[in-house]
Amino acid sequence: MPTPKILPCGDSALTVEFGSTIDPALNAMVLALDEIVRAHAPAGLIETVPTYRSLTIQFDPAATDYDALVRLLDQETKDLAPRHAVGRRWRVPVVYGGAYGSDLEEVAEIHGLTPNQVIEIHSSAIYRIYMIGFLPGFTYLGGLDKRIATSRRLHPRAKIPAGTIMIGGEQAGIAPMDMPSGWHNLGLTPVRPYAPERDPVFLFAAGDEIVFEPVDASRWEAMEKAVRAGEPVAEEIRP
């Protein structure tokens, strides 16, 4: 792996860039360095923001020894071991198709599959959370089976409901709240990755894994009631 680049982001941040593409190997390095920087907690550190391919480190310019920070990063990235091990894997129940996933049939048609085949393919993959961004709790998931990778919609929707299970290009995601989207809606989950009034506020973290479990629409009401009562409904399972 080439040496990561340190890019200046003004006087209060820098970005350690491992590459320019979406690649699980790069992301594993990002998460590994994130863990190291947070453990070191150099003076002045405000926070770290891991993304697909880079780690942005924000600090107080008046309290940070910038040269020492760069030396630490140079040293730690030299023999960095990727962080592939994931702490948690989550099972997320999904009601697919119909009013729950209005694009399921269209996606099936595009790929010459039946809706059930799309469900089968979508729910047998293990997804990895590469990053959380765009909105609070929005998970960018890698691991979508190429057989159902679908370019984004020509006409984005102004609003899709919270809990929408969607795919766009080779990515997959879960809508944490009502949001605009150009991706395709396959189904709906009552699970809320983000709930400001709940403890924990965020269910998932970058590096976690997610599997989707198809469930019957008859279970929707009971699951939704549990979520309203503050239960996660997403279930932590052993990999």
Binding site: S12, T15, S20, F134
Partner: peptide
């Protein structure tokens, strides 16, 4: 177009 990376105030 770049693959999304971190943003800071003032970018």
């Amino acid at each position: 177009n770049i693959v999304s990376d971190g943003i800071v105030d003032g970018h």
